[in-house]
Simulated assay, not measured.
Amino acid sequence: MAEGILRPLGSSDLRLSPLGLGCWQFSKGRGLVGKFWPVLEDSVIRDIVRTSWEGGINWFDTAEAYGGGQSEEMLADALSALGEAGRGAHVATKWWPIMRTAGNIGKTIDERLRRLKGWPIDLYQVHQPYSFSSAASEMHAMAKLVQQGRIKHVGVSNFTADKMAEADKALREHGLRLVSNQVKYSLLDRRIERNGIMEAAKELGVAIIAYSPLEQGILSGKFHSNPELVKQISGPRKWSSGFKPEALNRTRPLIDRLNELADKYGASPSQVSLNWLIHAHGETVFAIPGASKPHHAQENVNAMRFTLSQEEIGELAELADRSKR
């Protein structure tokens, strides 16, 4: 792996690259959520993981829900294909809580470990805040797994500020801390800055892991330069309001500025958008863009090769705010 700038994940001892690789697209078309992406060949998955690793990304985010464990298996195989050089890679995965209780966490951990084929779980996350148990009960179950040495750190996903505080309080009873909250966050979706989640994360020392960091590809600018591409979108993504003509018109000033900054830094609008995410709040925010082709992975890693100025970060935030008015 190329040496990059690593940062601590929340209060943990994990030192991770600001960008990780989101692995939802490794689901092989299995299950309900797996159909969101086209089926990728095993060789393509290996190339995506290798390109990410060699470019400086040292952690990979998957989940039980991604193809019912298929993404975990594909990731494990791709990491193993790196050989001895890839032994320092970190894996984050998630427990699916819907229609379950906290008792299921301990009952299903062996299946998660089996799917990951010997790769340790550095970060185990509760995928949604909805289960038949409280956040505190879930954290007590997670703490037991840490004590047993079956996982290393505990995170959550899509938790509100209050639930983050509840989770962290429960973990403290075991001498642990909540490490991360994975939420939707991008230049065009900054709700966590207004609903207390970002503030709570900073107060608790919890890392924010941003998913959908390019807002379904809108921040790439390709749909602004060629609106006809919207007609080619397949799957649920095509119904996103951001692809409507009036929305593209509202966000055009932001995209124009992203293009200008891309020219300045020898980057792309997508890379500038990702760079904004990982620098706008110090070291609090990590992001997990996906990649369905190796060149997408290369695009991701290049987003860590420069740093926007504070003035540019503020300017982009203001343009993003105006696009919502």
Results as ranks from 00 to 15, higher is better:
A2I: 06
G4C: 08
L6C: 07
L6M: 09
R7H: 02
R7P: 00
P8E: 11
P8I: 06
S11A: 08
R15L: 09
L16E: 06
P18N: 10
P18G: 11
L19C: 04
F26D: 06
G29Y: 07
G31K: 05
L32V: 15
W37K: 05
W37H: 14
W37G: 12
L40D: 10
E41N: 07
D42Q: 13
S43H: 12
S43Q: 13
V44Q: 06
V44Y: 04
R46N: 07
V49E: 01
R50N: 10
S52Q: 06
G55Y: 00
I57F: 02
I57K: 03
W59M: 05
D61W: 08
A63V: 02
E64Y: 02
E64R: 01
E64K: 00
G68Y: 03
S71C: 12
S71I: 04
S71D: 10
A76Q: 09
S80Q: 13
G83A: 00
G83E: 02
E84Q: 04
E84D: 15
R87N: 12
A89D: 10
H90S: 12
H90I: 05
V91S: 10
A92I: 03
W96V: 07
I98S: 08
I98M: 11
I105F: 02
G106T: 02
G106E: 02
K107F: 02
I109R: 04
R112L: 15
P120Y: 00
H127L: 10
H127Y: 14
Q128M: 14
Q128I: 07
Y130D: 15
E138R: 01
M139K: 06
A141E: 07
M142R: 09
A143H: 10
V146Y: 10
G149D: 11
K152D: 15
K152M: 14
V154K: 12
S157P: 02
S157D: 04
F159S: 08
A161W: 00
A161P: 09
A161M: 01
D162W: 03
A165V: 08
A165R: 14
D168K: 05
D168E: 12
R172Y: 06
H174F: 05
H174R: 04
L178P: 08
S180M: 03
S180F: 15
N181R: 01
Q182C: 08
Q182M: 10
V183M: 01
Y185S: 05
R190F: 06
I192L: 07
N195Q: 02
I197S: 06
I197Q: 12
L204S: 05
L204V: 02
A207D: 04
I209P: 04
I209N: 07
A210S: 15
A210Q: 11
S212Q: 12
E215Y: 13
S220N: 14
S220Y: 14
G221M: 06
K222P: 13
K222G: 15
H224Q: 15
Q232P: 10
I233N: 12
I233Y: 11
K238A: 14
S240N: 11
N249G: 07
I255P: 05
D256V: 12
R257E: 01
R257L: 00
E260G: 09
K264S: 13
Y265R: 01
S270Q: 14
Q271L: 03
V272W: 14
W276Y: 11
T284N: 05
K293D: 14
H296V: 10
N300F: 08
A303G: 07
T307K: 13
E311H: 13
E312F: 11
G314F: 09
R322Y: 12
R322W: 11
S323E: 03
S323G: 09
